[in-house]
């Protein structure tokens, strides 16, 4: 379970929201909150929403600061480490049982998560080159085989079936043109 006391990450995100709110207020003033005749102008909503966010985020930060942290949970540190890439300090901590049904501990799962995020970004970046379906197929095969260590054959079969189903629904039934990428252009 992740608790609200995931403090460092929580502080960072809420502080970022406060900054975003402040930025929005400044941007809104530049856009103009009210126009010359006193009507609502383009900056009104950003001003109100950004201002509200700034104030609420500050209140939340005060709340967080008031609650003195107890022992830091393993989770918090790991999350912190994941976000800003600090060196691993888990071994010095008291070990909490975090082994899931596949016998993976938190570190292994964090690595999986990092792999998936990188794979996702790469996959989208590859769409203009390989086309949509091909990139997605690679993503799925990678996730099932390399990240989840599933059976290779079964993974490939499921990937193929999923791609075929998506192709049927989107490209054939709904005739949505799926991008073929540069590769698709070369092949046609």
């Amino acid at each position: 379970m992740i608790s609200v006391t995931a403090r460092p990450a929580n502080l960072t995100v809420v502080a970022a929201l406060a900054l975003l709110g402040a930025g929005a207020v400044l941007g809104a003033i530049e856009l103009g909150v009210l126009d010359s005749s006193g009507h609502i102008a383009a900056g009104f909503m950003p001003f109100v929403a950004g201002g509200a966010m700034l104030v609420l985020a500050l209140i939340d930060l005060v709340h967080q600061a008031r609650h003195v942290p107890g022992a830091r949970a393993v989770d918090d540190l790991l999350f912190e480490q994941l976000i800003d890439g600090r060196p691993d300090t888990t071994d010095q901590l008291q070990v909490v049982s975090d082994i899931d049904i596949f016998g993976r501990d938190q570190r292994a799962r964090n690595r999986q998560l990092a792999k998936i995020i990188v794979a996702l970004v790469l996959c989208v970046a590859l769409i203009p080159l390989l086309g949509l379906l091909a990139s997605l197929g690679l993503l799925m095969a990678f996730a099932a085989i390399a990240v989840e260590h599933r059976s290779v054959v079964l993974s490939l079969v499921i990937t193929a079936v999923t791609l075929a189903a998506l192709y049927l629904i989107f490209a054939v039934l709904l005739s949505i043109p799926l991008p073929g990428g540069i590769l698709g252009g070369l092949l046609s």
């Binding site: 091909a134 192709y167 073929g180 990428g181 590769l183 698709g184 092949l187």
Partner: peptide, 9 residues
Amino acid sequence: AVLLAGCSS
């Protein structure tokens, strides 16, 4: 994937 890309271009 290469083959697929060809189909969906």
